[in-house]
Write a protein that binds this DNA or RNA. Structure first.
Length: 495
RNA sequence: GGCGGGGUAGCUCAGUGGCAGAGCAGCCGGCUCAUACCCGGUAUGCCGGGGGUUCAAGUCCCCCCCUCGCUACCA
């Protein structure tokens, strides 16, 4: 069983922010979940490095383009290392293999008659370097930057997208391709209003892949960028790899790039006679003080700062727990701290700490391997079933809620059994069962908070790594004669 | 303007025509192995407004108000 997961490739002209981090952590968590489920996972991410803005930026900074793209791409790559992102491949659009694939795709589409030469007439925003349709033709302003646009006319290759509208409409109607569900109608309406052909080359862009034609055109960046999902697994280059993983099972995107991914991208694949992705999931935005987080609004949320203060896993946890995946979320320091203290410190951290403490004081640190108490064991099974269902539906916050139901159960279990009480008969059974429960919770938490989970795992005295061994560990009884390690506070209380 | 969501407790939201709910926050008390977890008790609502159907309406129908998306080349 294979699964192919992608993130967008990130445009290196911008500094990575919480939105990039959110998409990538989401994809990573799903990738880890499927790996633990025994799937053969290919997880692709990378950077988008072409376009006029990159060219200008290098000029302004007085460095070569190569220096600029290497440096900025490196910033992303390094950040993903910091965030524990388990990508299979980090693709860069400036790699020769990618550039070659883009040209091959262009040629293939041309041969199939999916591209034709035409003339682009419309409005152009010089500062944005983009074609756009202004709201008011009498006073054409850029929909993006609100500055005046000029009317231009230039030859261009067009992609015959209109031809695939009906086919795409049917695919969307009949499949769970557009996620979340409430986006489905938006996309269908858009298609039903009629699709235009889209221009895919530019005349005046100096930094990009040149078209494999006699004229000197540059392939427009979005076209170049979308092809990464193909070139990343060897399309037209490595047939074994490609046929093994194609089509994508889950593609993560932000809601701002739905158009490209739910319309243009599948049309492109239809033109190439390739099977369409199973799911493209558009997540929401993080806001702060009700505004979209952006540099210009000055309400930047720095992932690095959060990590310095709380650690990586609390950030991963917060992003996926706080908001139902797909909706917008409000970020605030107070909200973060509340989640942290309430869920990670009070519920999970305290459970682990009190249990290990009891094992130390009541059982000299040794855990037995008798079968766990029956209601606990049954609850563990039903929680995992729900968890698995939620994860497969990419409902991260709900999956975490399931885990927390179980963590609450374990805290209650301890309280009701009260193994610290004088004359408590079955201390060993109670504590072994609780440890068994924490072990189950830790395994389920691993895709979300791999580092903290492993630390808990080690503290309980278990060998190996649940991230490597996967969910099959759930069916095993506890190893014999395990001794817990020294107690450590995994999530220190804040303020 | 067109299409589609929402409007229910302080906050986030669940709610199949049949006694208005959960989580978090609050208050009172208990328990206490622990990074104060758990238990018991308690408060809080014109369920956006108006009309209708019904023995019975957050729930179904009609009208209105407010709000948020989408309405093509922003990676």
């Amino acid at each position: 069983m294979k699964i192919y997961i992608t993130t967008p490739i990130y445009y290196i002209n911008a500094e990575p922010h919480i939105g990039h981090v959110y998409t990538t952590i989401s994809a990573d968590t799903l990738a880890r979940f499927y790996r633990m489920s025994g799937y053969d996972v290919f997880f692709l991410t990378g950077t988008d490095e072409h376009g006029q803005k990159i060219y200008e930026a290098a000029k302004i900074q007085n460095i070569t383009i190569k220096e600029l793209v290497d440096r900025n791409s490196g910033i992303y790559k390094k950040l993903w290392d910091t965030l524990n992102i388990s990508y299979t491949r980090f693709i860069r659009t400036t790699e020769p293999e990618h550039e070659e694939t883009v040209k091959k795709v262009f040629t293939k589409l041309l041969e199939k008659g999916a591209l034709y030469k035409g003339n682009y007439e419309g409005y152009y925003c010089i500062p944005c370097e983009s074609y756009a349709i202004p709201e008011d033709e009498n006073n054409p302003l850029c929909p993006d930057c609100k500055r005046p646009m000029s009317k231009i006319s230039e030859p261009s290759y067009f992609f015959r997208m209109s031809k695939y509208a009906k086919q795409l409409e049917r695919y969307i109607e009949e499949n769970d391709f557009v996620k979340p569900d409430f986006r489905k109608n938006e996309v269908l309406n858009f298609i039903r209003d009629g699709l235009y052909d889209v221009s895919i080359t530019r005349k005046n862009v100096e930094w990009g892949i040149s078209s494999p034609t006699s004229e000197n055109y540059t392939i427009y960046v979005w076209f170049d960028a979308l092809i990464n999902y193909l070139s990343g697994i060897g399309y037209l280059q490595n047939d074994n790899l490609f046929s093994k993983y194609w089509p994508p099972d889950v593609q993560f995107i932000g809601k701002d790039i739905i158009r490209f991914h739910h319309i243009i991208w599948p049309c492109l694949l239809l033109a190439l006679d390739l099977p369409l992705p199973k799911v493209i999931f558009a997540h929401g935005w993080w806001t702060s003080g009700k505004d979209k987080i952006s540099k210009s609004k000055g309400n930047i949320v720095s992932p690095q700062k959060i990590i310095e203060e709380y650690g990586l896993d609390p950030l991963r946890y917060f992003l996926l727990r706080e908001v139902p995946f797909g909706l917008d979320g409000e970020y605030s320091e107070e909200g973060f701290k509340k989640r942290y203290n309430s869920d990670l410190v009070n519920d999970l951290g305290n459970l682990v700490n009190r249990t290990v403490n009891l094992v130390e004081t009541k059982m000299a640190g040794i855990i037995g391997n008798e079968a766990p108490e029956i209601t606990l064991a049954n609850f563990a099974i039903s929680v995992f079933e729900e968890y698995e269902k939620k994860m497969k539906a990419i409902a991260f916050s709900e999956a975490l809620e399931e885990i927390w139901k179980f963590i609450s159960f374990l805290n209650r279990f301890l309280d009701e059994k009260a193994p610290w009480r004088e004359g408590c008969k079955n201390v060993a059974e109670i504590l072994n069962s609780t440890i068994f429960g924490i072990r189950v919770a830790t395994i389920m938490l691993t895709p979300f908070i791999p580092d903290a989970s492993l630390r808990i795992w080690k503290m309980l005295g278990f060998d190996g790594d649940p991230g490597m061994e996967g969910f099959k560990l759930l069916n095993q009884k506890l190893p014999e004669g395990i001794k817990v390690n020294k107690r450590e506070i995994i999530f220190p209380r804040k303020k």
